[in-house]
Design a protein around this nucleic acid. Sequence first.
RNA 1: GCCGAUGUAGCUCAGUGGUAGAGCACUCCCUUGGUAAGGGAGAGGUCACGCGUUCAAUCCGCGUCAUCGGCACCA
Length: 641
Amino acid sequence: MPVVRLPDGSERRFDAPVSVAAIAQSIGAGLARAALAGKVNGELVDLSHVVAEDASLAIVTERDADGIEVIRHSSAHLLAHAVKELFPDAQVTIGPVIENGFYYDFSYKRPFTPEDLIAIETRMAEIAKRDLPVTREVWKRDDAVTFFKGIGEAYKAEIIAGIPADQNISLYRQGDFIDLCRGPHVPGTGKLKIFKLMKVAGAYWRGDSKNEMLQRIYGTAWGRKEDQDAYLHMIEEAEKRDHRRLGRQLDLFHVQEEAPGLVFWHPRGWTLWQQVEAYMRRVYRDNGYMEIRCPQILDRTLWERSGHWENYKDNMFTTASENRDYALKPMNCPGHIQVYKSGLRSYRDLPMRYGEFGACHRNEPSGSLHGIMRVRGFTQDDGHIFCTEDQILEECVAYTALLQRVYRDFGFDSIIYKIATRPAKRVGADALWDKAEHALIESLKRSGCEFEISAGDGAFYGPKIEYTLKDAIGRPWQCGTMQVDFNMPGCLGAEYVAEDNARHVPVMLHRAIIGSFERFIGILTENFAGAYPVWLAPVQSMVMSITDAQAEYALSVATKLRGAGFRVETDLRNEKINYKIREHSMQKLPYLLVVGDKEKAAGKVAVRARGGVDLGPIPIEEFLGRLQHESVPAVSDPSHV
RNA sequence: GCCGAUGUAGCUCAGUGGUAGAGCACUCCCUUGGUAAGGGAGAGGUCACGCGUUCAAUCCGCGUCAUCGGCACCA
């Protein structure tokens, strides 16, 4: 006699165990039609699930996030079903739900083509139209293994064989297609209406590059057509802010074949870089860091001692001269230790903070290069803090606060915190790792930050906090890092004289706020879609003459603004003002200044702000004041940075 | 690095087994025009690179490089 409690608080009493579908029917025919799954006591179940005891129940429809998830999961099965119909000798593997969609990995004798994708999508629609019931079956594990082996599904059999033997497993069947799945699924394929296959790509079996490569088909699926259209539109919009595209359009940088993974910075791009660097230099200066500069190339033996050679020699660029082997530095820390070691340090000197805009080179795998986001030559805002164990916590807390302020200044106010703990391949005693991990956890607690643990993702010499910012369209970018290192200072012989007059090894904290300049500028570009705030904009204003008669005045305006420290250019070309406005508008400059005879006579500039906002003619001094006001990072007062 | 796709003018792209085309940009001329493209003329390409097949290759085949989409990697 189950009593079912619904989300609105009402209760329904049933005389006998009853299915979720029947409960939905008892509530209303419309709801029954819309029902995709149920949520019983917080757990997602099929509509066929029978409620035998008192429970809370919600009917899941396409309006719920859970409903969309079920649709995507079932769409993955629909995809596999279609592939098996069209390519019977393809083998299925896994097909999970991902953000905005799903994918399914297949093993097949040849790669799928874009034409295959169209055929598969068409077949999916046909199968959906058949409205095949999707039914759940519970099997004994070993029976399932035998079954899948028997129908030639070796991968599926392998997956199931990995499940504990005493565990029953659930299979879902729709027509001739049957697949291992935890579920739940939609009650029939007819519920799947809004989906689209997006792309085909290679992916390793079980995510391991030592394994064979499978064919992965990505798809998107939604409850409502409008949502899918909005999603596809969002993708188009995201493409418009692609930093590679904007880098060309705004003439910021380029890359070319002769230097894969290395950036040629153009005047405007380099100006943008300079603004970021000047800001970060100030961050160093005002927060107790001493800026230094170390060599690009260092003897191989140094990298052997630091442990980098052992761990990363395949990814290091090397060179040789007169019987000596060298490597381009992939990191700045060993260099900073050399500066630290250049004198005898006392505990009174600690903490010592060094900062460098260190240019590093790493021979990244060719397939990983991506615009200026993933490159082989990059510059970090890299800092190292030498301190005692007792000072770690305070340094970490201060650093987190500093990072938050910097991100805010660049317009990012959402940060995700993760702690990456010891990896399998590492140096140093476990006791030291215990201490280091504990220090990081404690510091985030002290900072009041919510965080998650990312087990095994630490660096080989120490654990780290990973700071991930979210951009204007919600994409996460891991930029900042704070790493506690009890190992490398010892490897490279850093020490200090403590109160006890004995020599001790300092702890080293590795930290970077924006990470790689190249990548961060790429992120800024995509975040602002190229419309940088005034303080970052490579060109803050463009003075444009209407005719030759104002050329001299336009130049004098530019000179005046430049004299006040602003980045100004002039456009005196023999072109119509419409033409000039269009051109510079597309360059997304913050201000366009039109000067004609009227402005010339009045000592004014006609100001057009970005986005076609007409501010009208205003005196030069007034405009200058406006620029001054906007030429500092938005949130924090630079005097406090 | 792995799977797949792509590589034609500065940019975005057509195109063909008989050595190439558009729009924009560029140069010159006309135009001096008040808030998102004024008109005309012209110049510009070893069709990524190498080796094959062919009477003939930008096109077909193989290899290399780079880029793009994923996967793996990311100190």
